[in-house]
Design a protein around this nucleic acid. Sequence first.
RNA 1: CGGGAUGUAGCGCAGCUUGGUUAGCGCACCUCGUUUGGGACGAGGGGGUCGCCGGUUCGAAUCCGGCCAUCCCGACCA
Length: 446
Amino acid sequence: MAKKPDLGVTPLSEDVSAWYNELVFKAELADRGPVKGTMVIRPYGFGVWELIQSQLDRRFKDTGHVNASFPLFIPMSYLEREAEHVEGFSPELAVVTHAGGKELEEPLVVRPTSETIIGEMYAKWISSYRDLPLLINQWANVVRWELRPRIFLRTTEFLWQEGHTAHATEPQAMEETLRMFDVYAEFARNVAAIPMVKGEKTPGERFAGAVRTYSIEGMMRDGKALQSGTSHYLGTNFARAFDMTYQDENNELQLCHTTSWGMSTRMIGAVILAHGDDQGLVLPPRLAPIQIVIVPIGRGEQGDAPRAKAHELADQLKAAGVRAHVDDRDASPGFKFNDWELKGVPLRVELGPRDLEAGQVLVAQRIGEVDDKGRAVKDTLSFEDFVASASDRLDAYHDQLLARAERFLADNRASVDDWDTFAAQVSTGFADALHCGEEPCEDDIK
RNA sequence: CGGGAUGUAGCGCAGCUUGGUUAGCGCACCUCGUUUGGGACGAGGGGGUCGCCGGUUCGAAUCCGGCCAUCCCGACCA
């Protein structure tokens, strides 16, 4: 079926940038804000973020962390206390110089990250080895005045979580750094269905102020890598700058060893780029605000019964923990099918008068077999079987997506001999380079 | 900050070379009617300081000058 030019999105293979931008807007994930580089995350996109948040947050809690909230404004002098940190961040700081109708005595930085203000507070809270480890996470917005913004991937303001922990010793802090690194990789795989390559950043790419920076990198559909989460061992750099010390068992004063780790709304961009296709978004079921959409067919009185049955099925699905939605809109079925494919909903169900009579539904999967017209091959299921199997189908769909992404990663990796070549291949363009340093990468994918 | 492009309705565009007074088209939107198993159809309708400032001219979307903004490709970055 020939697409009209104003329908759908530019094919991925034709122009990745155009495809990505059109998709973000047409799928109603986000819109541009009035200030350069800012974005409005629309309800559908925010729904994805909420699912990222809730599933990451559970993992943080399971590993002993608690949430707190620190101030948006940080005195400029705080950043200046850690030389590398301020040097790394100063080009992209937004600074408040006026407030309350007059010039401030000291400029305030809108946080680009919170190591400094959290360091200041931790120094007050920690005095004994009994206070350690201190394991706090915060969900927040941060601002970095980037030269070249790109929606979700690099916005001036973005949402993220930043974990900040303080430990007595280097081994303990390193253990934490790697633990959260693993949590990110596990989350990416089991929730976002994106297999990640794990590596350590080169000194030049390290977080400003870190001793070691670890990064998970996902393989996008255009063959480029995208940095999707980082975990830093900060050594005693910030502890020294903020006088974060504790008394050990021998009455001796020691510097804390700290870590920080973050994952941001860039993850939404990673999901788009890792799974999307020419039809639009492909959402992994565990991040899909709508996992199953039911499209009742038939209008007027003829549509009343299918619509009622659709709502009944949706209620049963919701009771089973599935995020289901009935598309009641006054539009043709074809329009709705294309619309939900653009929005990446994993499973679509059709329910018309004929199905109602036969006691069945037609189930189409967002990715999977297609017929010679390029349309999804649909399964026919009884109402009971459909409701009973919905969760399993979503799980199977996740596995299928993950397997596809793994094949894609393997195919792209197989074509290169060594990591330097691979890094060069994936480092062009907007995506972050998958850098494992000058030497071949030691910490490979599991 | 380099290189490239674009600013005309919510979105996508034409018109500009060769100035002419109601500024057009498609989609979207509103009303009515008919439709509905892969992007429905007809009729009617609403929506514009043509990015901004200045200049030329009887007259500027159109010509000239300046500015601004945005997007794309690099450098920086979650």
